[in-house]
């Protein structure tokens, strides 16, 4: 049997927000180590990889590996019924065709349970090779969201150009051109406000705005975001999830015709 208890169910709400624009359904793979999800968006251009370690949960039990195919619109309906401060317990029997979500209010005076049907999904897992990236940029997640939103007004693509000095985001289209430069922060009071760049080689790559904007739906999960880039390989946009793990988005760079 599978059982996972989460005192603050807001984390799962945020995770759902972070994936439901890209994915209609997904398989949650549960094992002793935790819950993992890997899925491509419908157009197979981007990939979402979620890792929630079992030790982040307040209680976690997984006797046998379990793959839960979930319609994310259905799960969203259920998670909307939970208060942010509710205690969440997810339960499923081995080989079950349904999963139960139980919400308990902090004072335990209200207990709700929702049973959701699981679906069979043809899951295609991709092997993601270990990569030494040429540039690793860490920056405030809110700033990244703002830049993606602002630049998407100017064009369908964003060019990200990283050097030792800083990172430049550019877009161009009918309106004109836009450039946003961020320098490494010299010293900041709070670590989460810092912009840091680890660079082996300068990199310039072009990405579709639409997907970057979808990735920023994860902003609520972490104050910082990490962008990893190398020439001719997918960009990795990573948000850490507190004590649990991370969500990573991969996006293939656009190539010359």
């Amino acid at each position: 049997m599978f059982e996972a208890r989460l005192v603050q169910c807001s984390m799962l709400k945020k995770v759902l927000e972070a994936i439901k624009e890209l994915l209609n359904e997904a398989t949650f793979d549960c094992s002793d180590a935790g819950i993992q999800l890997q899925a491509m968006d419908n157009s197979h251009v981007s990939l979402v990889s979620l890792n929630l370690r079992s030790d982040g949960f307040d209680k976690y039990r997984c006797d046998r590996n379990l793959s839960m195919g979930i319609n994310l619109a259905s799960m969203t309906k259920i998670m909307k019924c939970a208060g942010n401060d509710d205690v969440l317990t997810i339960k499923a029997q081995d080989n079950a065709d349904n999963v139960m979500f139980m919400f308990e209010s902090q004072n335990q005076e209200k207990v709700s349970d929702y049973d959701m049907k699981l679906i069979n999904l043809d899951q295609e897992h991709l092997g993601i090779p270990e990569t030494d990236y040429s540039c690793i940029i860490k920056m405030p997640s809110g700033e990244f969201a703002r830049i993606c939103r602002d630049l998407s007004q100017f064009g369908e693509s964003v060019v990200i150009s990283c050097t030792k000095e800083g990172v430049k985001f550019s877009a161009a289209g009918d309106v004109g051109a836009a450039n946003i430069k961020l320098a490494q922060t010299a010293n900041v009071d709070k670590e989460e406000e810092a912009v840091t760049i680890e660079m082996q080689e300068p990199v310039t790559l072009t990405f579709a705005c639409r997907y970057l904007n979808s990735f920023t739906k994860a902003t609520a999960l972490s104050p910082q975001v990490q962008l990893s880039m190398s020439a001719d390989v997918p960009l990795v946009v990573e948000y850490k999830i507190g004590d649990f793990g991370h969500i990573r988005y991969y996006l293939a760079p656009k190539i010359e015709e």
């Binding site: 251009v45 897992h125 991709l126 693509s157 997918p234 760079p253 656009k254 190539i255 010359e256 015709e257």
Partner: peptide, 14 residues
């Protein structure tokens, strides 16, 4: 203009 390649061009199916 530029083309948007699919993820499978970079990562192999396991």
């Amino acid at each position: 203009s530029r083309l948007q390649p699919e993820m499978k061009l970079f990562f192999r199916a396991r």
